[in-house]
């Protein structure tokens, strides 16, 4: 793999892993603590983003393209997921008149 050493950054992999884990923890706290469906959804996006940071860090650390390809597809799926998820929030608001997820405890409307 000649020429790929150019791509290798000087940031220690442990820093990036620490960043990713911290972001995932913050996102998990948001999902568990908040009741506003939109903020919960934003926290889920943050957790997805943390996984992306980890993929990029490992791709950088090991000089391997697979991590970057994964991140590309995760971004594509995240766009679809955001549209579907926010559509669900809209539908939830139509049914219950609120975005409080504690009020939406029934599986059937």
């Amino acid at each position: 793999m000649s020429g790929l050493a150019l791509l290798h950054s000087v940031v220690p992999a442990s820093w990036a892993i620490l960043l990713a884990v911290t972001l995932f923890a913050i996102g998990a706290c948001g999902v568990l603590l908040r009741r506003n469906a939109i903020i919960v959804f934003a926290s889920i996006e943050m957790m997805m983003n943390a996984a992306n940071v980890l993929f990029v860090a490992m791709a950088d650390s090991w000089d391997h393209a697979a991590g970057r390809i994964f991140v590309f597809f995760v971004i594509v799926v995240a766009a679809a997921e955001a549209a579907v998820g926010l559509g669900i929030v809209l539908a939830l608001y139509r049914l219950h008149g609120t975005v409080d997820i504690d009020r939406a405890s029934l599986m059937r409307g």
Binding site: V11, N52, V53, V56, I75, A78, A79, A83, L86
Partner: peptide, 28 residues
């Protein structure tokens, strides 16, 4: 952070897709 970790294209895609499109959806 992606750009510093030498994934420049993903940094640009992140700004376009996440900070652009998805955030507009959220705000909307």
């Amino acid at each position: 952070a992606y750009i510093v970790l030498s994934s420049q294209f993903l940094g640009a895609a992140q700004v376009l897709v996440y900070a652009g499109a998805i955030m507009v959806l959220f705000l909307f």
